[in-house]
């Protein structure tokens, strides 16, 4: 038995600002054993506890796919003490990491199927790792569609990668910003994500959907998908409950008898529907 709460030290290989108060770190392992153990366990959708001694730890997904084995990435918003302390770190400095924890997107079961990714705002990171995982294994999957929206153009994250996806022949990318959030040279759509999904009317035929975003976006997007004919078991999302331990002990992420940190964070909408809704 070892100390489950002992984190490993990661070096920040590079840091970039994505959008106001949103920052991405590319992190390299300083401990080879931890790195090996990490990649043995890591599947796309899992999360970690990123920390800075003295400030504490915070939970974010691993935003890079298991197909990238030199580094992991995380993208997060400045919301409190820990995220503020982390964002103040620069390339070359270190932070701590524990993980990977939780379950994953069953992408091996999606082989040969079409996939539509729908994300809003800061919720692109968990989806982005799945997108790259799928794109790194492109031939195994059918049609790939990405719908991504943010409040304003400035709030869009991974702008370079949006351009890359845009340029790919075998990816359909639809970007949108809320009305009033556009700039003069904005070439994407203007409108809320649920509306854009509705207008683009993706076929549910042999298709799975991955939906991550603010609760309000999810609330209005799910009925659109249902109306289009998507089955609740084919729509995947992640729950963002508050967590402290990440390993099924501290009780904070409990929803009903579930530990979101162990049984999740990835759930189908069918599974979410069976949870006590008032605790979500």
């Amino acid at each position: 038995m070892s100390n489950l709460y002992q984190p490993t030290v990661m070096r920040i290989a590079s840091a970039r600002d994505e959008a106001p108060e949103i920052r991405t770190f590319r992190l390299e392992f300083t401990d080879d054993q931890y790195k090996q153990d990490f990649y043995k366990k890591y599947r796309v959708g899992m999360f970690g506890l990123y920390g800075l001694p003295g400030a504490g730890e915070s939970t974010f997904c691993v935003a890079s796919p298991p197909t990238r084995t030199d580094y992991i990435e995380c993208t997060f918003r400045r919301t409190g003490r820990v995220t503020a302390a982390l964002q103040d770190r620069e390339a070359g400095q270190t932070i701590t990491f524990r993980g990977p924890y939780g379950n994953s997107f069953p992408i091996d079961q999606w082989k040969g199927r079409n996939i539509i990714f729908i994300a809003g705002g800061i919720a692109l990171p968990p989806v982005r790792s799945v997108i790259w995982n799928v794109l790194d294994r492109r031939s195994e999957f059918g049609k790939v569609t990405i719908v991504y929206g943010a409040r304003t153009v400035a709030d869009l994250v991974y702008k370079d990668e949006l351009a890359q996806w845009e340029a790919m022949d075998d990816v359909e990318l639809i970007t949108t910003v809320d009305p009033g959030g556009e700039t003069a040279d904005w070439k994407g759509k203007i409108g809320f994500v649920p509306t854009v999904v509705k207008d683009s009317a993706p076929s549910p035929e042999d298709c799975v959907a991955v939906v991550c975003g603010p609760p309000i976006m999810i609330k209005f997007t799910l009925p659109v998908l249902t109306d289009l004919g998507f089955a609740a078991g084919d729509i995947f999302t992640t729950l963002e409950n508050r967590m402290k331990c990440g390993i099924g002990k501290c009780g904070r992420c409990n929803v009903g008898s579930l530990y979101v940190c162990k049984d999740g964070p990835v759930f189908t909408v069918e599974q979410v529907g069976k949870m006590p809704q008032g605790d979500l």
Partner: peptide
């Protein structure tokens, strides 16, 4: 009851990470 919180407490030189009881 076994819910807990994890909190850091530090001076300029050193610190500890603590598991403190918490409650729903």
């Amino acid at each position: 009851c076994h819910c807990f919180d994890i909190q850091d407490e530090a001076t300029r030189r050193e610190g500890v990470r603590l598991r403190n009881w918490d409650a729903c």
